[in-house]
């Protein structure tokens, strides 16, 4: 059963078309890597998938009945600055009434501990390391138990230890996942499908082998750069 369906989705920024007529279906367990140079529309695609923006034309549908269908991991920001990391992680389940305050906070601390970020659990985001914030994003997404994980460069700027932790967490998630990144190589082994965004166009690649064989000059140029 599909988790996300984009049909002919077009997204514009004012007069500029970011991408047009995009079709995309993600099912449970799918792992899609959306990649391309800066300004190619990766972030717009992720926001569209997360339901933060609506397409200017076409449709975008999330078919999960969960109160939190999406877990969103942002590259920067996205954590409430007046809450601690643990409170940020607990917020979605608390808001949707799945757990009471104490239980939600306790589960949030467990989630942070499993990702190795418990040391920073009681700090506010501004006082935490990049890795701490990224791991808090992941913990929040896992605790929300979504059908779709939307991740902006989840491995970017992480040290080797945090990278290994995030990789393991991403490998273990049963949810469909879409990663947006300008650096493809860290996700080549993880991704099952690939989507190259370039100058308003999106090209699908069903697997790593077809991606590596592709002769699209723009893709070759991007991969070799």
């Amino acid at each position: 059963m599909s988790v996300l369906e984009l049909r002919g989705a077009t997204v514009k920024d004012g007069e500029r078309t970011i991408f047009a007529g995009l079709d995309l279906v993600l099912k449970a367990g799918d792992r899609l890597v959306a990649f391309g140079p800066s300004g190619s529309g990766k972030k717009a695609l992720l926001k569209l998938a997360a339901g933060i923006i609506r397409p200017d034309s076409g449709t975008a549908e999330l078919t999960s009945s969960s109160s939190t269908p999406v877990g969103y991991v942002m590259e920067e920001g996205g954590l409430l600055s007046n809450l601690s990391l643990a409170q940020n992680v607990a917020l979605p389940v608390l808001y949707h009434g799945r757990l009471g305050y104490r239980d939600a906070l306790s589960r949030a601390r467990e989630a942070l501990e499993s990702l190795g970020a418990i040391r920073e659990a009681d700090r506010r985001p501004a006082l935490c390391s990049i890795a701490g914030r990224r791991l808090a994003h992941l913990a929040r997404a896992f605790l929300a138990d979504p059908a779709l994980m939307v991740l902006e460069g989840p491995l970017d700027e992480l040290d080797a230890r945090s990278t290994a932790t995030v990789r393991r967490a991403l490998d273990e998630t049963p949810a469909a996942a879409i990663v947006g990144t300008a650096a493809l190589s860290p996700y080549l082994a993880w991704g099952r499908r690939f989507l190259f965004l370039h100058r308003g166009k999106a090209t699908h690649y069903a697997d790593r082998a077809s991606l590596e064989k592709a002769e699209d000059p723009a893709l070759r140029e991007f991969l070799e750069a």
Partner: peptide, 22 residues
């Protein structure tokens, strides 16, 4: 304004947390 620029409102929106309520 800072919450908007820092992506905090977007994150709330992704988790279906209504900014009006929260």
């Amino acid at each position: 304004g800072t919450m908007r620029l820092g992506g905090e409102l977007e994150a709330l929106s992704a988790y279906r947390i209504d900014p009006v309520a929260f």
